[in-house]
């Protein structure tokens, strides 16, 4: 009987928490516009179709890692017959995508997906300045 104040406060708090994404996004003026990527300047064709790369690039990278580290296979032949040297820093970043920050990180930060590629590999842009 005397607990209605507590119950309605609790219900109000719950409703605020549940609807938090709605009013937080409206307040911050967030839109559903996705991350802005820096696209490769010259290359028009990735090693695999874009739809595959969007959903499954980690499978490709993982298989490359497997092949290179376990079997020493350091080349990859794409569907259109071109052969690439398998190297994240040397090929992907240097030859096409130019920047980890403006390509990889934009989407990965947007979707809050952390990757451990760069625990071992170096970002060629940063390699000169820092000791690491």
């Amino acid at each position: 009987m005397r607990d209605r104040g507590w119950i309605y406060s609790g219900l109000g708090l719950f409703l605020i928490l549940v609807t938090y994404p709605f009013w937080q996004n409206l307040r911050a003026g967030v839109t559903s516009k996705g991350p802005d990527l820096r696209r490769p300047a010259e290359a028009k064709q990735c090693v695999m179709p874009v739809s595959y790369m969007r959903t499954s690039h980690m499978d490709l990278l993982a298989s490359w890692r497997e092949n290179a580290v376990r079997d020493g296979v350091r080349t990859f032949q794409s569907a259109d017959g071109q052969t690439y040297n398998v190297s994240l820093s040397g090929t992907c970043i240097t030859q096409c995508h130019a920047s980890k920050e403006e390509f990889c990180d934009r989407c990965h930060n947007y979707a809050s997906v952390s990757n451990y590629c760069w625990d071992c590999h170096v970002d060629p842009r940063q390699a000169h300045g820092s000791a690491r």
Binding site: L26, T31, S32, K33, G34, R54, T55, C107
Partner: peptide
């Protein structure tokens, strides 16, 4: 089956911003 996570987030944000 994998999914395009960026598109999924864009859709979710669209829902959350009433657009």
């Amino acid at each position: 089956t994998r999914v395009d996570v960026i598109a999924a987030k864009q859709f979710a944000l669209g829902l959350a911003t009433f657009s």
